[in-house]
Design a protein around this nucleic acid. Sequence first.
DNA 1: ACAAACAAGTTTATACCACAAACCCACATA
DNA 2: TATGTGGGTTTGTGGTATAAACTTGTTTGT
Lengths: 99, 99
Amino acid sequence: MIELDAHIHQPARLRILMLLSGVDSADFNFLRTTLGLSKGNLSAHTSRLEEAGYVEVTKEFQGKIPHTSYCLTELGRSRLEAYWRALDEIRASGDALRV
Amino acid sequence: MIELDAHIHQPARLRILMLLSGVDSADFNFLRTTLGLSKGNLSAHTSRLEEAGYVEVTKEFQGKIPHTSYCLTELGRSRLEAYWRALDEIRASGDALRV
DNA sequence: ACAAACAAGTTTATACCACAAACCCACATA
DNA sequence: TATGTGGGTTTGTGGTATAAACTTGTTTGT
């Protein structure tokens, strides 16, 4: 039984990862507004993804204002691909039993 | 933003629904052994799916022994299809941002 | 006959987690 | 000064997935 990565199998985090998979990097507010997440929620999810090693977090000052951006790591990218493969298997599992 | 149905977006329940989508009905032990779930876990998940109206539960006696079987309702089937469509959208969302 | 084990689930308890609300700090503006 | 805004983090709470314990009845062993 292939497991679904619990770090990824969560709607907000899945969307975050998918968004990051299509760009070089994205900052906090872009993620927040694009995905419609609250700040607290986004912060918590990005923290989890960082702990898991799936995203890299870059904090820098733009002038006097702190600015945080995120990019997908190689690990994150491969786990994300594995996740979709696992989901494909589940998706096929209904047909597998059909005569 | 299309929502992922929380009743479905859970690994065990998703597998249960996909399995049921491929058969007329399946009983408790078949689900349990096929999916590798504990009895308690399976019972809890099927209860949720029943409450949601996604599966129909049939209890009868086979000889002297009680026997429980499950089948997908029409509602369950349509929600399951909607779930996969929503997931397809998320899956495509990475490419959407690519140049 | 009677205890022990088994069958088929359900109920309970706990640990985790998603989310929102509250908070923090610096800067801008009136 | 105080009031608001940008950019986040921390905290509290309610919901939930899971395993362990329990229930109800049946079968097996002796």
